[in-house]
Amino acid sequence: MLTVPVGTQIIFAGILFFLGLIGLLVRRNMIFMLMSIEVMFNSAGLVFIIAGTHWKQPDGQVMFIFILAVTAVEVSIALALILQVYHHFKTLDADAVNNLKDTN
């Protein structure tokens, strides 16, 4: 079976998480920011799976299923919000949506 040390696996999950974090911080396009959040969710789930495999308990996989449900809800709500923002502001730039006043 897989004999990669657990530390290496956690490091891989950490690299993925920080790539998502960098994308979330650098990009201003809302689609790309949402994609970066997806990468971060995925790496968090990967850590759960690694821990569940390490201790040979099914709890890690149960937690991943919960993360999957949360991610599905988050993506659908966020994409609906992005559609509304695009219809209202005609742009996907996150910096254009920093004012609360009514623009029309």
């Binding site: 696996q9 990967l46 799976i49 569940g52 495999t53 890690g60 996989q61 991943f64 299923i65």
Partner: peptide
């Protein structure tokens, strides 16, 4: 990687 970590269902 999930498959290699013996979590085929996930």
């Amino acid at each position: 990687i999930f498959y290699l970590l013996s979590a085929p269902f996930i």
